[in-house]
């Protein structure tokens, strides 16, 4: 299993993760190792096998009545934010990179 540093950079971009050049090198090597190990899965015959998306059978589309109920409130909801104003989260501007 080979993986290029360009692929690692692409994945980092998808994951919104800035990586230093030495991290790109490290993860390129380690991802290749880990994926090579995981290649054993290709030996398994999975023809006709349904994927298990959830381990509890018969539990699907759990809903609650569509009724209003008290929530946290704006003040408490933004209390942990690094920057806030008037009950809102403050964020940097969205640029062409965003």
């Amino acid at each position: 299993m080979s993986i290029t540093s360009e692929q690692t950079e692409h994945v980092a971009k998808l994951a919104r993760l800035a990586l230093a050049p030495e991290e790109i090198a490290l993860y390129t090597r380690q991802l290749a190792q880990i994926l090579a190990h995981m290649h054993v899965l290709s030996q398994v015959d999975v023809n006709g096998v349904e994927p298990t998306l959830h381990v509890i059978p018969d539990l699907a589309n759990v809903t609650r009545p569509d009724a209003s109920r008290p929530g946290l409130g704006a003040e408490l909801a933004v209390a942990n934010a690094p920057e806030q104003a008037d009950g809102y989260f403050r964020v940097p501007r969205m640029g062409k990179e965003g």
Partner: peptide, 11 residues
């Protein structure tokens, strides 16, 4: 810039 903030914060 927002995107740069995400990436740097996570790094």
């Amino acid at each position: 810039e927002l995107g740069a903030m995400y990436r740097e914060t996570r790094r």
